[in-house]
């Protein structure tokens, strides 16, 4: 089998089947864009988790004058405060760092955060509880701290920032699952479209293939032009999807989102480039797979 012959056959096939080939390219491009979007979303979530989990703390709010918790008997005493700190200290290495934040410190931060807001007038330093801010070796170890402190006198409440983040990540996870579901549906459509394209193509060239068989052409040389035809469409479609994803990184993430949302760490170019081979592999892989099983059915020796 000669290269020029195969190239000519593939060219003829694509030209004759042009509309189907275009449909196939678009389907591959759309479904792979979705696959890519789902993968990028996962990378983004992982990156944000890594970044934020590193920063989150456990807040141990201490009793004030108005506290009603059963561990409180009015404002915390110096003795109780020292005891809480000792308990925290005994939890090393789970507890890595301990900061103390007094009501005045808290009020100062509050003032900064709500500068210019009317709410400031209604808040006095007394309304903001003093607290210990604790950094853990692993945010998952929150329970250890909570168990150790929940019955200690002078502790009003213990708050895990991770819970707040987890709720946010759950929403992202939902979006991600949705993107994956749509991507799978589109990949399925692509497989069907490949099958149909190959079937139409095989029907249009049934005379050629019957001649090929009767003169003793090998199965591979009969099927290769069809498979290559689908592969060309898959490569073009994958390229479009890749271009779309790189464009999204460049024009949407880097140019618009990153400068405005400085507190979110966005996916890096390395992470984006890492999914490009995956897209090509998936695109070409499912196309060749679908083409092969269709040919097995329609071009029986």
């Amino acid at each position: 089998m000669r290269f020029s012959f195969v190239r000519r056959e593939v060219g003829n096939g694509i030209r004759r089947n042009f509309t189907m080939t275009v449909a196939l390219i678009v389907a591959v491009a759309v479904s792979l864009s979705l696959v890519g979007a789902a993968l990028l979303m996962r990378a983004q979530v992982d990156r944000m988790k890594g970044y934020w989990y590193d920063k989150i703390e456990v807040s141990i709010f201490l009793c004030g004058n108005t506290s009603v918790a059963f561990t409180c008997t009015g404002a915390i005493t110096d003795e109780q405060r020292a005891n809480v700190e000792a308990v925290l200290g005994s939890l090393a290495p789970t507890v890595q760092e301990i900061f103390y934040e007094s009501s005045e410190d808290a009020y100062g931060k509050f003032q900064e955060q709500f500068a210019g807001s009317a709410i400031l007038a209604n808040i006095s330093p007394d309304a903001l509880p003093e607290s210990f801010r604790v950094k853990l070796d692993d945010p998952a170890n929150f329970e250890k701290v909570a168990t150790a402190l929940q019955a200690v006198q002078g502790v009003e409440s213990i708050q895990d920032q991770r819970q707040l983040l987890d709720r946010f990540f759950q929403i992202l996870k939902g979006l991600q699952s949705f993107a994956i579901a749509v991507a799978i549906a589109m990949l399925f459509v692509t497989v069907l479209l490949v099958m149909n394209t190959i079937r139409v193509s095989a029907f249009a060239r049934r005379r050629e293939t019957s001649i090929m068989r009767s003169v003793g052409a090998s199965n591979i040389s009969i099927r290769l032009p069809f498979i290559l035809e689908a592969t060309v469409a898959a490569v073009v479609g994958s390229t479009l999807a890749t271009a779309g994803i790189l464009a999204a990184k460049y024009w949407v993430i880097d140019a618009r989102l990153a400068p405005n949302l400085t507190f979110i760490p966005f996916i890096t170019w390395e992470q984006v480039l890492a999914i490009v081979p995956v897209l090509f592999l998936v695109g070409v892989g499912i196309t060749v797979f679908a083409a092969s099983i269709t040919l097995r059915r329609y071009l029986r020796g």
Partner: peptide, 11 residues
């Protein structure tokens, strides 16, 4: 010639 090309005969 087509019949010969598909079984890989040289030009």
């Amino acid at each position: 010639a087509f019949g010969m090309e598909v079984i890989g005969k040289p030009k």
